[in-house]
């Protein structure tokens, strides 16, 4: 899965997967009792149809790009950083914690401070998963998954306990931040230009680091073959920790942006499962960092458009999630078929 493929093959695969997904989706939508073409059209128009929709899609695109870029680092080092959800959450927790002492608001510097705090929070959580892997010999999938649960538990405890709203015990979230601590959004949307700029910068930076720096090269060497990397003195343990910390910091940034830019408070669902979606993006992109923004945009449009399903067709919006799942599965199916075909040809 970690082998690099040519751009043409990736694109071909993507197209094949899209066609397969379209067929499967049409079937599902038909079973759900809705007009398939209209459903898909509503999904797409619902995510792209107007400036407001585009702004919404862009607002979802931001955390997706941040997290997918973050995962490019760990994927390069051959790591399955499932713990990214927890790292987003910790970023949100740290950002909220940083801003809590300022109920009467403050300057933009505080917001920047919160973003930094979020990065530290995410990085520390990722470091924990990394140390579990390098020292504790716990595979990062299990370590990360465990830490995700701990992160959610921590958030719930904070929201229901020390950070509760006065006189209220509700899982719905903490007291909203003072409006001066909100990231400025474009007229009436939750799209913040600052977040957009940050996401773009981070993506370009990660792409550059991975393709054109020695560190990126070493990371990939570790990802390809740890034993060889060890022999070449590349110190894979340290590289792994570096990749994890980098990934965690970026995920933490995404979490912090959800707090100051979108929800303006901490809630249990603050990560919005963007981490898991980003894992899908990173897997689908399989090292092709160029297509990451495109894939993220696609998922963002699906996410935003899904709300139109119940509004216009009285369909459950989770159908969009099903479509997303079908798409990813189709991709892996196409990949699987391809390999099977290759094996068959070889045996003939």
């Amino acid at each position: 899965m970690f082998s690099k493929t040519s751009l043409a093959t990736s694109l071909g695969r993507l197209v094949a997967a899209l066609v397969l997904a379209l067929v499967l989706t049409t079937l599902i939508v038909l079973i759900a009792g809705a007009p398939p073409l209209q459903t898909l059209a509503i999904l797409v128009v619902g995510g792209l149809g107007s400036a407001a929709k585009l702004a919404q899609a862009a607002a979802v695109w931001i955390p997706l790009v941040l997290c997918s870029s973050a995962l490019l680092l760990t994927f390069a080092a051959g790591l399955w950083n499932i713990g990214i959800e927890g790292q987003i959450i910790l970023g949100a927790v740290f950002a909220t914690g940083f801003l809590r002492p300022f109920p009467d608001g403050g300057s933009f510097l505080l917001v920047m401070g919160a973003l930094m705090a979020g990065m530290i929070g995410g990085a520390l959580w990722a470091l924990a998963a990394g140390l579990l892997r390098t020292w504790g010999r716990v595979h990062e999938i299990f370590g990360g998954l465990g830490l995700n649960f701990v992160a959610l538990g921590l958030t719930l405890w904070l929201i229901f306990g020390p950070w509760k709203r006065p006189g209220i015990a509700s899982m719905s979230g903490t007291e909203p931040l003072h409006p001066t601590l909100w990231l400025e959004a474009l007229g009436g949307s939750s799209l913040s230009p600052v977040s957009l700029l940050l996401a773009l910068t981070v993506f370009l930076l990660v792409a550059f680091v991975l393709s054109s720096t020695q560190w990126g090269l070493r990371l990939k060497a570790v990802g390809q073959n740890q034993d060889a990397a060890l022999l070449f003195g590349l110190n894979p343990q340290v590289r792994i920790l570096e990749a994890m910390v980098g990934c965690g910091a970026l995920a933490g940034l995404a979490g912090a942006l959800q707090v100051v830019g979108v929800y303006h408070r901490l809630l249990p669902a603050i990560s919005s499962n963007y981490g898991y979606t980003a894992l899908l993006v990173a897997m689908l992109a399989s090292f092709r960092s160029q297509i990451v923004p495109v894939l993220c945009f696609f998922f963002a449009v699906l996410n935003v458009g899904s709300i139109q399903l119940p509004l216009q067709l009285k369909l459950d919006s989770s159908l969009a999630g099903v479509i997303q799942g079908v798409l990813v599965l189709s991709f892996f199916l196409v990949q699987g078929f391809e390999e099977r075909f290759r094996v068959l040809r070889r045996t003939e």
Binding site: Q56, V60, S172, G173, G188, S189, S190, V262, Y263, L267, P268, A269, I270, S271, S272, N273, Y274, N303, I307, S317
Partner: peptide
């Protein structure tokens, strides 16, 4: 937020 992650009421 649990059922519709990522969406806010104003949206």
């Amino acid at each position: 937020p649990a059922d519709r992650p990522g969406l806010t009421l104003p949206q």
